[in-house]
Design a protein around this nucleic acid. Structure first.
Lengths: 243, 243
DNA sequence: TTTTTCAAAATTGTATACATTATATTTATT
DNA sequence: AATAAATATAATGTATACAATTTTGAAAAA
């Protein structure tokens, strides 16, 4: 119902990404263009374009003899993606501290931080949905702080890899011991990061962001360890090689 | 003559990238698919695919109303690209130091370093061509050291941006004062980097690589400052906004 | 039984025709 | 004359037909 007035390409891109993320095509087999095109109700042309973009994203990989298949991700691959995201986000923070950030952007950041506070201290406990949303906003803003379109783009790129986004599978982690406490810890890191940027402490800002990314890594490890007991429809989880 | 047995797509990709890099389509105008397809002697289908990939590379950018145009790069954009390359290469070095590198790869690195030495101390002065080649090899190897396919890929990606590669416009810099001396300095950095990795000194390896990337930045600044006096066919230079 | 060869089938790569949308030009109106 | 509307033109987006390649499967040979 949201697909009207979307181009065939955009439709195919969204649909195909979702199917791949949910493990619809697992098996390492080449995915047939005619079959998938029929499944998505479009022609081969926009589908091929969508496939091309997913290859660029890293979700699919080309086969030497033609066509492409779903890429497989080991746990190490995803850990690397999370670490690399932390590294580039750290660079964004350092650049922001070194180059300065407009008062307007800073006030936006503070507004987001207050939003996160409210999500944590909601009257009926934690407001997951709101937290996830605000957290994503914070990281988007952090990328913007860099003042570099390239850095911003690369953060987005890496964050698009399965389970690498700062908000990935956040709401599935209620089972983690001391989960709410870790959210509070993350929020203190958020504030420290903004503080360091405001004070033009580049090295500190970078280090803090990297440390912040380690939380995602810890959560990912927990997620994969207890995988069987958790709901299995976390997007991207199906792509993690089991061995 | 090298284009036989290349697919239409590969042909279009190479040709189009080269044309764009050399400023054939400067002007910010949308580049017409039919016109360019005719110019490359192929049909629209593989050309569109090639355009799509160049958009993913960042060389072209999509236009909201359809089609795409050549992206424009400010000096700051390129400086950011060089810095980001340094950051990710630094991560590769740190990962290599932390995780360890096989003896075989290390010996390959040492062989490359000796090759660079020979290029610098060639009987008839400096051997540019050889130096450029070996230097590229060193950086490729460094990416490989990370042990992470993702990190390797992202280094390649960023290095593909105009003037961001570690070997970009190296041979055009003979006019730089103390140029050979700076190559010797760079080579000492290379050795220090390998040493740090061998000794599992992650933080040092990372810092050294970042410092190493600053050389490219210095050279880029020199290049753009004296741009009028230098040969103007340095690939990518045409894309730098003059203002 | 296993391997090799060859042909048929199916799949991807490419070209092109068509539909749809954006752009340019012209005409009408203020 | 300047602006707005309308039409004509040209461009991109999409579907499909065809060509080239790969894959599959069967038949023949070892």
């Amino acid at each position: 119902m949201s697909d009207r007035n979307l181009s065939q390409l955009d439709h195919a891109l969204l649909e195909l990404r979702s199917l791949v993320m949910n493990g619809e095509f697992s098996g390492g087999q080449r995915l047939s263009e005619v079959a998938v095109a029929k499944q998505l109700g479009t022609s081969r042309t926009p589908l091929r374009q969508a496939m091309d973009r997913l290859v660029a994203e890293g979700l699919l990989e080309r086969i030497e003899t033609g066509g492409c298949r779903v890429a497989t991700f080991t746990r190490d691959d995803i850990a690397d993606a999370i670490e690399l995201r932390g590294v580039i986000e750290g660079t964004a923070a350092r650049m922001a501290a070194e180059r300065g950030v407009s008062a307007e952007l800073l006030s936006q950041a503070n507004a987001v931080l207050e939003g996160i506070d409210r999500a944590i201290k909601a009257s009926n406990g934690l407001n997951f949905e709101c937290y996830v949303h605000r957290n994503a906003e914070f990281h988007t803003l952090l990328a913007k702080f860099s003042g570099s379109a390239l850095v911003q783009r690369e953060i987005e790129r890496v964050s698009m890899l399965p389970l690498a986004s700062p908000s990935a599978f956040l709401s599935e982690q209620a089972a983690i011991p001391d989960f709410v406490d870790s959210l509070r810890y993350a929020q203190r890191q958020h504030r420290a990061i903004v503080e360091a940027i405001t004070n033009h402490e580049g090295a500190r800002a970078e280090a803090l962001v990297r440390e912040h990314a380690r939380l995602a890594l810890i959560n990912f490890n927990y997620l994969t360890d207890v995988q069987p007991t958790l709901v299995n429809d976390v997007p991207g989880l199906a792509l993690v090689a089991s061995t």
